[in-house]
Every structure is written in structure tokens, then in C-alpha cells.
Amino acid sequence: MNKDQVNGKMQDIGGKIQEEAGKMVGNKEQEAKGLKNQVEGKTQEKYGDAKEQVKDSLN
């Protein structure tokens, strides 16, 4: 596992928490920010996955 995979997963989880917190208090802005963080986190995680695949294919 590389840092992009870890950081991406953490951002995704944080975004889910932020989205749910926004829903609980009725704050649409926090919900939207949570969704944005989830997308960014998943993107970073996929980038990390790709890096791992390239590294593995070179070995």
C-alpha cells in the first residue's frame, strides 16, 4: 500500500462522515463538501492503485 492509497481512503472516510453530519444537522453545504471529499479521496486512491500496478509490473 502506498501513501496515495492510504490518504485517499482517509479522505473518502472523512467525506462520508462530513456528509452524514451535514444530513443530521440539515446543512446542505456540509453534505456537498463531504461528497466532494469522497470523490477526491476515491480519485487519489485509484491513482495509488495505478501506481502500485505499475510498480508490480516492473518487478
Rank of each mutant, 00 (worst) to 15 (best):
M1P: 10
M1A: 06
D4N: 15
D4R: 11
D4I: 09
G8E: 02
M10W: 05
M10D: 02
D12A: 08
D12V: 11
D12L: 04
I13W: 05
G15Y: 08
G15M: 08
K16C: 03
K16Y: 04
Q18Y: 10
E19T: 02
E19L: 06
E20S: 15
E20A: 15
E20L: 14
A21Y: 07
A21F: 06
G22V: 06
G22N: 09
M24H: 12
M24I: 13
G26K: 13
G26C: 15
N27Y: 04
K28G: 06
Q30L: 14
E31G: 01
E31F: 01
A32G: 07
A32H: 11
A32K: 04
K33D: 11
K33F: 01
K33G: 01
L35D: 08
L35Y: 03
L35N: 01
L35K: 03
L35T: 03
K36W: 15
K36N: 09
N37L: 10
Q38M: 11
Q38T: 06
Q38S: 06
V39Y: 04
V39C: 06
G41K: 00
K42V: 01
K42T: 00
K42C: 00
Q44D: 10
Q44N: 10
Y47F: 15
G48M: 08
A50M: 14
A50G: 03
K51L: 13
E52K: 11
Q53C: 13
Q53R: 13
V54E: 13
D56Y: 02
D56N: 15
S57A: 09
L58A: 09
N59L: 10
